[in-house]
Structure formats: structure tokens, C-alpha cells
Computed example of a mutant assay.
Amino acid sequence: MTIDILFIWTAFKEILKALPTTLFLTIIPLFAGFLIGLAVALIRIYKVKYLAGVANGYVSFFRGTPIIMHIMLIYFGFPLLIDLISAKFDWGIQSNSIPISLFVLTALSLSAGAYLSEIFRSGIISVSTGQMEAAYSVGMNTFQAMTRIVLPQAMAQSIPNFTNIFIGFLHTSSIAFIVSQKEMTGAANIVASTNLKFLESFIAAGFIYWGLTIIAEGLSFLIEKKATAYNRGGVQ
């Protein structure tokens, strides 16, 4: 067997057309997961009555089960729930009118929220309690102390972990192909099936994923350098 070098370039161009979908399936869940994760982390840290147990169960379940299972559960389970509620309250909504991407985004967002909550929690508790006490001593309330002192430091320290989560979900977005979302891995599979050149197609896809990972790591390095400048005596 020989490798068709020219076809790698052909496949590369075709797969690249699915890049917007891949980025969409990566960035939107991470943004939603950011908000979910921060809320869940604060609930767990402050042991909010009634909610802390729910938050702990949520994190345990979504971190303890594979993301592909989350997608399948929501893809098959949510339509049944939507149809049941719609019929009960006579809303006239049919689950088959809802885009598949919405179910995928929901599953990925919930998964991202669970992982990011642990990153937030570890970042927040790594900031010394003395800084909170100092904030209280100058008249700040808890919200002001968290937003002005604790969270900025926690975020800066967590940048490498955020980068790892981004890269992980960039690769995880390929799972969406099992529910007919044509992202880059799905595009590679389609190109390969059409031309029966699977090796070349997935080599091309691999180069694209690799390139995106290198870009993400580079941006992370620059952001981390700026965000942690205070540790080196000021912004450079």
C-alpha cells in the first residue's frame, strides 16, 4: 500500500470546511460550562444549604461517566421528556423540530461545567484565607473580596488547566459525529469513505487538530504570562 500525498492535501481542504462546526461545538460548551462551573464551585465551597448536595452529585456523575454517554442520554432522553411535557401542557412543541446541535451542546456544556467546577474550586481554595480576612478588614464584603481579589488570582493560576480542558473538548467534539453532526472527524470519515483513502484523510485531520492544539498552547502561554505578571513584580 502506498500513501497518496496529493490526496492528503485534498482531504485537508475538505476537512477544513468543518472547522467552524468543530470550534462551535468546543467554544460554546466551554463558555456555558464556565458559568455553570463557577456557580457549582462556589456552592460547594460555601456549602449552600440544599444545593451543595445536588452540586456534589452533579460533579460526581458527570466526571465519573464518559462524555459519549452524556451525549447519548441527552440525545435520546431529552426528546422524550420534551414531548411528554409538551403534550401535558399542550405547548405544541415537537422534539424533532429542535436542532440536533442543541442536544450536543447541552451534553457538552454540562460535562464542561463539571470539570471546570473542580478547576475553579481548586483555584479558589489555593488563595490564602488571609487575603479574604484582609479584604474584610478594609470594609469589603464577600462578593467584593471574591471578585476583586480571590477570583482574579484563582483564574490566573488555573490558565494551564483551562487550556487542557479546551484541548480536551476540542478533541471530544469529534464524538458529535455519532449523532450526525459533521465536525472535522466526521468530515474526515466522509471524505475517506467516498474515496476509500482512510489513512490519508485521517492524517490530514490529525494535522489540523495538531495545529489547533499548538495555537491554543501558544495563546495560553501569552495569556498566562500577562495574567501572572504580578508574581514577577509587575506587568512587563
Results as ranks from 00 to 15, higher is better:
52 A>S: 15
89 F>M: 09
146 M>V: 00
98 I>G: 00
128 S>W: 05
47 K>Q: 15
80 L>Q: 10
122 S>D: 12
50 Y>M: 15
147 T>M: 14
149 I>A: 08
97 S>D: 12
76 F>L: 14
78 F>K: 00
136 Y>H: 12
128 S>H: 14
102 L>I: 13
50 Y>P: 13
108 L>S: 06
147 T>D: 13
57 G>D: 11
131 Q>H: 08
151 L>K: 02
120 F>G: 10
84 L>N: 05
142 T>P: 02
81 L>Y: 05
149 I>H: 03
56 N>G: 15
119 I>W: 02
132 M>S: 14
122 S>K: 09
128 S>N: 14
111 S>M: 07
124 I>L: 14
69 M>G: 05
54 V>D: 08
95 S>I: 00
76 F>N: 08
133 E>A: 04
77 G>F: 04
71 I>W: 08
84 L>P: 01
78 F>A: 10
88 K>E: 12
67 I>W: 07
62 F>Q: 04
50 Y>R: 13
53 G>H: 13
50 Y>A: 15
147 T>P: 01
113 G>I: 08
152 P>Y: 03
136 Y>F: 14
60 S>E: 14
101 S>F: 09
46 Y>H: 12
153 Q>G: 09
44 R>S: 10
74 I>K: 02
94 Q>S: 14
69 M>S: 15
98 I>M: 01
94 Q>F: 05
70 H>F: 01
63 R>P: 10
68 I>F: 10
48 V>I: 15
127 V>A: 13
147 T>K: 13
149 I>D: 04
134 A>T: 04
150 V>C: 04
43 I>H: 03
87 A>C: 02
71 I>Y: 05
141 N>H: 06
66 P>S: 08
62 F>W: 10
